[in-house]
């Protein structure tokens, strides 16, 4: 292992069945924080293309303590018992991670960083736990505005594959239009009643997002970093975030960055490297030094 850090397994929870890996620095930064990294979608704690491993090792090399962990039921962690909703269970699991680092490493301040669903969970944690002084949200939530839909449809219309699908009858737009027509004519689809179709993922409501942002930023003074890739078009409409975040602008505690060339999971090593370098900056970011929204 690198001389700059060492990695160890940590088992969390009352049953010791939640798996985490802690990266300890060889030399602790005078203002060391605990960096929490978690699952993105179903991918286990190492993150897509080992993104969490890169971020954890980079943070540890800079003198911080990093923990990448599997939430209950993900990766190598046992499923949760107790019937909590996903977000509630995730917050409980991350708090266990913070408690562990507080007890074993004496840390009191934390940074929660996650991609996609991990970003949503990080924000929720920041809203609920004042120990989180910074949340790094990579391709987090979005919410629906007129421009959101326009951008989504424009993206599809510009793709050759979309037109091919349209002609062959397997197109999102064609299905969407069909649904609208059926709704207008009050026609019940044939498949209905033969078994429930899975519920599609729902965009979180803007009001819920901003409630979390308000709790985190205003109530707890958490710094928020929102980093957007150039991946799915609906993640990249930065302007639509501004009105919601405007009330917090004066606090200087929300930072937006865009990685327009990267895909959603920062697949190429060049893009991961750019994200890791930015992560260094974000860990050192203090609101006085960097203005929000450029």
């Amino acid at each position: 292992m690198s001389a700059r850090f060492v990695e160890r397994v940590a088992l969390l929870g009352p049953e010791q069945d939640q798996v985490a890996v802690v990266s300890d620095p060889a030399t602790r930064h005078p203002e060391a924080v605990g960096v929490l990294l978690m699952n993105a979608g179903l991918i286990h704690r190492v993150g897509p293309n080992r993104l969490n491993v890169d971020l954890a090792r980079h943070a540890a090399s800079a003198g911080h303590v990093a923990m990448r962990l599997d939430l209950a039921g993900f990766g190598d962690s046992a499923p949760a018992v107790g019937g909590l909703r996903f977000e509630e269970g995730a917050v409980r699991d991350l708090r266990r991670g913070m408690d562990y680092l507080a007890e074993t490493r004496g840390l009191t301040r934390f940074v929660a960083a996650g991609l996609c669903s991990g970003a949503d969970v990080s924000l929720k944690l920041a809203a609920e736990d004042p120990r989180v002084e910074q949340a790094v949200l990579i391709d987090p939530f979005s919410y629906e505005t007129r421009l959101f839909w326009l951008q989504g449809y424009a993206h599809r219309l510009l793709r050759r594959e979309s037109w091919s699908s349209f002609i062959h009858g397997d197109s999102y737009i064609r299905h969407a239009l069909g649904d609208r027509v059926r709704q207008a004519l009050n026609i019940v689809p044939e498949a209905e009643g033969q078994g429930a179709a899975p519920e599609p993922w729902q965009q979180p409501e803007a009001s819920r997002i901003f409630e979390c942002v308000s709790d985190a930023v205003v109530k707890h003074g958490t710094r928020l970093v929102l980093a957007y890739s150039g991946g799915p078009a609906w993640y990249n409409y930065l302007a639509h975030l501004r009105p919601g975040f405007q009330p917090h602008k004066h606090t200087g505690r929300v930072l937006l960055e865009r990685f327009a060339e990267a895909d959603h999971t920062f697949t190429l090593s060049y893009h991961r490297q750019a994200l890791v370098q930015a992560f260094d900056r974000w860990l050192a970011w203090r609101p006085e030094a960097v203005p929000s929204f450029g």
Partner: peptide, 12 residues
């Protein structure tokens, strides 16, 4: 990729 040129040219 959204805009691959630079990353491909500068990557491994």
């Amino acid at each position: 990729l959204p805009a691959p040129r630079e990353a491909v040219a500068r990557g491994p």
